[in-house]
């Protein structure tokens, strides 16, 4: 069992998952964040049953109304219920976060591992390719994607995914470079562990805490980036209740009807915050070397 080499003997006795859960339970803040996120996901999934109003139906009789008994979070410029839109919008915004990070993260990790592990010309070539991508401003890439493929949330996801790739790649490569020299990898190598196994079992787990921390940040960043894209008119297509689009749209009314930005802004803030705190907790719990 080569895998145990990387782990302290005690970890081999408990099951890794049990160990992880035991540690994670101690992260109280992270547990709260997880609960918040679960609630958000559930409310998004069950939006049709929870939302008090249809998110797209206008009511010109109650435009820009502040919070009231009928509309807890008020109404927007078309008289649509903001609470309902935030609940439905969770579907869009959370998908933007998860999908773009999953897509960009996977590609980035693979590139980073290969690059850091094999080094040489392959490393050079891959990293220069990443440089090209990094140097290419994300917003311009997004404009390109939207110009070529048309406006819409799918294309927002692709754009954000593309510009997460190089950061994941460089991050994983950095750790891989360091871990390659570390005692346990050297030891594993010396007893003839294969390259794939070295990368996947010995280096990747070592790189994971960093990746998870970054992915958790990135989940939030993706949601924020979607908002920025809406700000410059390249975001979700109307009448999508994507939170960033709501916020960008509502900013025209800052000073007149602040609830148009306050609630979508808070939704984004809370979600991004929760992702980050959760990521922190996960990192601590995942790290096999921590006691």
């Amino acid at each position: 069992m080569s895998a145990t080499l990387a782990q302290p003997p005690s970890a081999a006795i408990r099951t890794p998952i049990g160990e992880f859960l035991r540690r994670f339970r101690r992260q109280h803040l992270a547990l709260i964040a997880l609960a918040v996120l679960l609630a958000l996901v559930l409310s998004a999934v069950f939006a049709p049953w929870i939302a008090p109003y249809d998110p797209a139906t206008p009511d010109y009789a109650s435009v820009l109304d502040g919070p009231s008994a009928a509309h807890w979070l008020g109404t927007d410029a078309y008289g649509r219920d903001i609470l309902s839109r935030i609940i439905w919008g969770g579907r869009v915004s959370l998908s933007v976060g998860f999908l773009s990070v999953a897509l960009g993260g996977m590609v980035g990790i693979v590139i980073g591992l290969i690059s850091g592990f094999f080094g040489g010309w392959l490393d050079g070539a891959l990293m220069r390719l990443m440089d090209v991508l990094l140097a290419f401003p994300g917003i311009i890439l997004a404009i390109g994607v939207v110009a070529l493929l048309g406006p819409g949330i799918d294309n927002v996801i692709y754009s954000i995914a593309v510009f997460s790739v190089p950061v994941f790649a460089r991050l994983v490569r950095g750790t891989t470079l360091a871990l390659k020299q570390s005692l346990y990898v050297q030891a594993a190598r010396s007893i003839g562990v294969g390259k794939m196994a070295l990368m996947l079992r010995h280096i990747l787990p070592g790189a994971m805490p960093g990746v998870i921390v970054y992915a958790s940040l990135r989940l939030g960043t993706s949601i924020l980036t979607a908002a920025s894209l809406s700000f410059i008119g390249l975001g979700a297509r109307p009448p999508s209740p994507e939170w960033g689009a709501m916020l960008a749209d509502g900013r025209s009314f800052l000073g007149v009807a602040d609830h148009l930005t306050l609630f979508p802004g808070l939704a984004i803030f809370v979600t991004v915050l929760a992702f980050n705190i959760l990521g922190d907790g996960l990192r601590d719990a995942l790290d096999q070397k921590l006691r």
């Binding site: 206008p58 078309y78 110009a147 048309g150 406006p151 008119g233 297509r237 109307p238 009448p239």
Partner: peptide, 22 residues
């Protein structure tokens, strides 16, 4: 403006996809 028009058309049964163009 386009969003408003979309709502108005929907009320008479015309489904309009809004395409904001760069």
């Amino acid at each position: 403006a386009m969003q408003f028009l979309q709502q108005q058309f929907a009320a008479v049964g015309v489904k309009v996809a809004v395409e904001p163009l760069e």
